[in-house]
Design a protein around this nucleic acid. Sequence first.
DNA 1: CAACAGTTTAGAATTATTCTAAATACCTGA
DNA 2: TCAGGTATTTAGAATAATTCTAAACTGTTG
Lengths: 141, 141
Amino acid sequence: MRRKPKELTNETATARLRQAGLRPTRQRNELAKLLFRNGHRHLTAEALHGEAVAEGIKVSLATVYNTLHQFTQAGLLLQVVVDPTRSYFDTNTVYHQHFYHEDEGILTDIPGPDIAVDGLPTPPPGTEIKRVDVVVRVRKH
Amino acid sequence: MRRKPKELTNETATARLRQAGLRPTRQRNELAKLLFRNGHRHLTAEALHGEAVAEGIKVSLATVYNTLHQFTQAGLLLQVVVDPTRSYFDTNTVYHQHFYHEDEGILTDIPGPDIAVDGLPTPPPGTEIKRVDVVVRVRKH
DNA sequence: CAACAGTTTAGAATTATTCTAAATACCTGA
DNA sequence: TCAGGTATTTAGAATAATTCTAAACTGTTG
Ligand SMILES: [Mn+2]
Ligand SMILES: [Mn+2]
Ligand SMILES: [Zn+2]
Ligand SMILES: [Zn+2]
């Protein structure tokens, strides 16, 4: 049972960008390939930039930030807030929740059936719920 | 049914600091009085500093940061992470969850019986759950 | 009250992130 | 195919929250 390294071809990446309404540039293609090549990922802008540089992809940090935000707006990514010092982006855009490993600064998806949040009250008048985030903070013991 | 303005006396503040193992200085006393004078509060370092200055209390922003962290370590405050651009501190230290009003950048406690999170899996081996945070993000509609 | 450790502070430093505005790359219509 | 226009990229400056430094000050204790 080998995990197939679901490499994105340039064409697939381009198509995905187009249908998200984003012009497929070299940088966006490359970043999309890094982001979506294999399973779900949780990473920071710095981390993605480092990865790109390590693979010889020429892209500036500003573009990585721009791209992550554009992908987020387009629904290709989700931004996750767990640490006051940095932002994480999640390639898994279906509803799910997270473990945050405080020692290592690593986010992982909570597996299994979805977490249920019971006892949610009506939101304050004039407001609507946009999203419910659950973060389970764990530590090595 | 008037809400009594539960002002903290200097003595009460001092006592609270002592039993938290913190030396009761003028700045810590004043900040404690602002923080704990009336109901629960959710505020940023900048906000608390602004409030202090507005009331004529002489204290530097660095001290506000120091104090908020010391109070947090001592268990008098809880830090809440909901916005990647700033940290909130909560004077309500019993287990509870939050609404985050994204438009206004305001945190409020979720009232009523505690939220129940069902379906939490066992944490990854070698780790223990430190805290479960639920943030209900709301927006004006 | 002396003396020391703990605390405060101004200002510099750090870090993540955003902004600017100039150069470059896509895309479309001719 | 290509010119022209717009979107994108980028280096570097700017911003903003927060932390650090090291010198001055203050609470505590004997
Ligand atoms: Mn921050
Ligand atoms: Mn930040
Ligand atoms: Zn995830
Ligand atoms: Zn609260």
